[in-house]
Design a protein around this nucleic acid. Structure first.
Length: 566
RNA sequence: UGCCCCGUGGUGUAAGGGUAGCACAAGAGAUUUUGGUUCUUUUAGUCUUGGUUCGAAUCCAGGCGGGGUAGCCA
């Protein structure tokens, strides 16, 4: 399938100051604590990756590029954290791989599944039981919760807490053998029921789940909990720096406890950073799932979604997302980044890479009354003023044109530089025209303009302030265009669809008029429609010779700002 | 309510005892056959109160504010 081009992440510039995580990594390398670094990106295959994951991916995968270490052995693993058979599906695994590759990162042969370590987890559990550090608890979930205590009071021990290692070993074997139904008992760590950190009040290590696992099938009916499995996964892979988001901070003592009490080949260090939040955007998987299931959007890859699949389809270049992630930095405090910064990164990437064409979104007919009947003139137009090597093309010009409705005002203010009755503007790369007549329909709507052109203005002519784009009506091709806007109307959406959803997040224009060259664009091709914005031929809905366009992002529009002030 | 983490221009972030810097946004101007791009420029900040120090955004204490945390989710 055609997919908007990807490009590998280049080695990063060595100018930016180091964030606190990079400082730690640099120190660990300098001190000789580690000869090279190993990181990992460990998504749970239960949904699609989103822009928040991109922040983590860029961090995890950039570190080995920035700190190659001894013999260039630094690396980043891609690992499916698939310890919950009830939530995970194999189809997500492929989309996750695709998204990581699309972002420009290479995990080489370092693709792993936590479920490949199930035997190891089991052996460690047996070790914990033997050393008296874990026990099988038959309390119901409700009892366990009640006996966990409160924020101010310690928990009370389960009556199974003092069972002997042999008894626990036997019970754990029964759990594993499938002798008990779901929820009948759990394996718990024996740590400290009075700990001020609730995570240390004898946390569950294993639960019984009789469910088929997408990767291990029916081999297991007990599954490890995140807090137990994750440190073991990291240690197994000899990860040096295990980076995760802030909500796992309180879990770190448990992470360290597992590492300290199990026979592991390495001692990874967990470091937490703040997850990404964006204005006008809801990122959490739970919310995205709801939008999809409720039909608010048209699937996980609806271009209004913040999933990587959607951003790809929307036309965001991976390099822009990488640049964005580098710009926002890594910290430990909660913040919310301006969505405009992401869009700015997208514009920057596209400005310097993509050809320009003429396209008229909302066409208004202009008849040039003094144009020689039937005459067609080929006009040379530059493909990208930033990239002279992209050359130029010829655009046909005739006496009947489409221009943008927004480029005409019947009663324009003085700061409006475009067309109005009696006003003169330049048709970009072509001629100056002067509006001589405004034709309206029964309801008083402007339906056509008549104008005269200045034949001497082919390569200059009178200097005018307004320059507009245009398309020859006889040569124009009609294409569907979708204009996307932010999904939410408030800076910090809560997910209240009725109150906060942007009713104009998608506007579909069935027939925009574009110059002939545009019709030849292949799915995934991007361009700028001059003066309007950047567009991509949709990879899903385009047909050969009949592209359907998505607006990636609009151009900066300083006229809109002036107009808004009035 | 306990414990833990965190507070720097509007926003995102540097500086980790010695000139508060950068980017985005906003404003002004220049250039421009895209009201784009580019360039110049202006505005604007260390939560608070004490303490240590010749000197504190930085170290210490209290306060205030924000966040996390009591799944057999991750």
């Amino acid at each position: 399938m055609a997919s908007p081009s990807s490009s590998p992440a280049p080695p990063p510039p060595e100018s930016a100051p180091l964030d606190f995580i990079r400082q730690i990594v640099a120190e660990d390398l300098a001190s000789g604590k580690h000869p090279f670094v190993v990181t990992r990106f460990p998504p749970e295959p239960n949904g699609y990756l989103h822009i928040g994951h991109a922040k983590a991916i860029c961090l995890d995968f950039s570190l080995p590029l920035e700190f190659p270490g001894e013999g260039g052995r630094s690396r980043c693993h891609l690992r499916m954290d698939d310890t919950n058979p009830e939530k995970e599906e194999v189809e997500y695994v492929e989309s996750i791989k695709e998204d990581v590759r699309w972002l420009g990162f290479d995990f080489g042969g370092h693709f792993y599944n936590a479920s490949d370590y199930f035997d190891f987890f089991h052996d460690c559990a047996v070790h914990l039981i033997r050393t008296g550090k874990a026990y099988v608890d038959f309390q119901s979930p409700e009892e366990m919760k009640a006996n966990r205590g409160t924020l101010t009071e310690p928990g009370t021990p389960s009556r199974w807490r003092e069972a002997t290692p042999d008894e626990n070993l036997a019970e754990f074997a029964r759990m594993r053998a499938g002798e008990y139904p779901d929820g009948h008992c759990v394996l718990r760590a024996k740590i400290d029921l009075a700990s001020p950190n609730l995570n240390l009040r004898d946390p569950a290590l294993y639960r019984i789940v009789h469910a088929e696992h997408h990767h291990t099938g029916n081999r297991w009916c007990i599954y490890p909990m995140y807090d137990y499995a994750h440190p073991l996964e990291d240690a197994k892979e000899e990860v040096t720096h295990s980076l995760c988001t802030l909500e796992f901070e309180a879990h770190r003592p448990l992470y360290d406890w597992v590492i300290a009490n199990c026979p592991v080949p390495a001692k990874p260090r967990q470091i937490e950073f703040a997850k990404l939040q964006l204005t006008y955007t809801l990122i959490s998987k739970r919310n995205l799932r709801r939008l999809v299931e409720d039909g608010v959007v048209d699937g996980w890859d609806d271009p209004r979604m913040p999933t990587l699949a959607a951003l790809r389809r929307r036309g965001f270049p991976p390099a822009a997302i990488r640049a964005f992630c580098q710009l926002i930095g890594i910290t430990k405090f909660h913040s919310r980044t301006d969505l405009g910064l992401l869009e700015k990164c997208v514009r920057d990437a596209l400005n310097k890479s993509v050809p320009r064409y003429f396209g008229v979104l909302r066409p208004l007919k202009v008849t040039v009354t003094n144009w020689p009947a039937g005459h067609v003139e080929m006009i040379e137009a530059v493909n990208n003023p930033e990239l002279p090597e992209l050359g130029s093309r010829e655009v046909p010009m005739s006496g009947e044109l489409w221009i943008e409705q927004d480029d005409f005002m019947e009663d324009p203010p003085k700061e409006f530089f475009r067309l109005g009755p009696g006003r003169e503007v330049r048709l970009r790369y072509a001629f100056n025209i002067t509006c001589t007549e405004v034709i309206k329909d029964d309801q008083g709507r402007v339906v056509e303009l008549k104008a005269t052109y200045d034949p001497d203005s082919r390569h200059g002519g009178r200097k005018v302030k307004g320059i507009i784009h245009w398309v020859s009506a006889a040569h124009a091709r009609a294409v569907p265009v979708r204009l996307y806007d932010r999904l939410w109307t408030v800076e910090e959406p809560t997910g209240d669809v009725a109150a906060e959803l942007n009713p104009h997040s998608l506007e579909t224009l069935p027939a925009a008029m574009v110059e002939p060259a545009v019709a030849a664009m292949a799915p995934g091709d991007r361009c700028q429609f001059e003066r309007l914005g950047y567009f991509i031929a949709d990879t899903k809905d385009s047909r050969p010779g009949a592209p359907v366009f998505n607006r990636i992002v609009g151009l900066k529009d300083s006229w809109a700002k002036v107009a808004a002030k009035k």
